[in-house]
């Protein structure tokens, strides 16, 4: 009997706006999430530090069920909203940790 093809795994849509809302709520109180440019450097401006990385990783897991591999818990993956979305999407596709 031929093997059945594996069921397609749903990859959640990770939205810049969603990430921006969390970053603003957690690290930039008083700022409008809509004003946070997806390419704004959160590391260089000290918005995100090592603790912030863990907070965002935990939130991605709670919000989207995405578990980032240990190797992805590096500053470069959390430097901007766009970088956070990219690392989350890679992990959701099973391509994280590269």
């Amino acid at each position: 009997m031929p093997a059945e093809p594996p069921a397609a795994t749903a990859v959640p849509d990770v939205l810049d706006g969603d990430i921006a809302a969390f970053v603003v709520e957690r690290f930039l109180p008083g700022v409008d999430a809509g004003e946070l440019d997806p390419d704004y450097d959160l590391l260089a401006t000290a918005v995100i530090d090592s603790l912030g990385i863990l907070h965002i990783a935990a939130w991605l897991e709670q919000r989207y069920g995405i578990v980032l591999p240990d190797a992805d818990l590096a500053g470069r993956n959390f430097r901007t909203v766009a970088a956070i979305r990219a690392v989350a999407e890679r992990a959701a596709r099973g391509e994280g940790g590269a």
Binding site: L51, A57, A58, A71, L73, A74
Partner: peptide, 24 residues
């Protein structure tokens, strides 16, 4: 050189922000 040493630190604290904050 493959894994950032900080990743091992995060693992030590179960990647729990509250435990890590306690460490800080």
């Amino acid at each position: 050189l493959v894994v950032d040493p900080m990743a091992r630190v995060y693992r030590h604290f179960g990647r729990d922000p509250e435990r890590f904050q306690g460490f800080m």
